[in-house]
């Protein structure tokens, strides 16, 4: 069920999860976090749980990344305005 590809994917998820909290730029942090969602989606699909994979793809990868990015954009706009 869990092949070499799955184990590799798990390792990449773990690495990017650590990178998401240690990286210095917030946008990198969001992108690493969205990679965790993508990896989890593929893992769920490999483990024959398509319902969970669909939910993870729609919410974990799409929606959360979108909300984070738009919030990041709004807040960075405000900080830019404060500095000037």
């Amino acid at each position: 069920m869990i092949t070499v590809f799955g184990i590799l994917l798990m390792a990449m998820i773990a690495i990017s999860a650590v990178k998401a909290i240690t990286t210095t730029k917030l946008i990198d942090s969001v992108l690493f976090f969205s990679f965790v969602g993508i990896g989890a989606t593929i893992l769920f699909a490999l483990m024959k749980a398509p319902d969970v994979a669909l939910t993870e793809a729609a919410v974990g990868t799409g929606l959360v990344t979108l909300v984070f990015l738009s919030t990041l954009r709004r807040t960075s706009e405000q900080e830019h305005g404060d500095e000037q």
Binding site: P50, A53, L54, T55, A58, G62, L63, L66, S70
Partner: peptide, 29 residues
């Protein structure tokens, strides 16, 4: 499709609803 075929294929109201809402979010973007 995912919403209506929730009882036949993987997916359902939650997933399909989020996807259809993604369309509206795209319009807002």
């Amino acid at each position: 499709y995912i919403t209506i075929h929730g009882h036949l294929t993987p997916g359902g109201g939650f997933q399909g609803g989020v996807m259809a809402a993604g369309m509206a979010l795209l319009l807002i973007l």
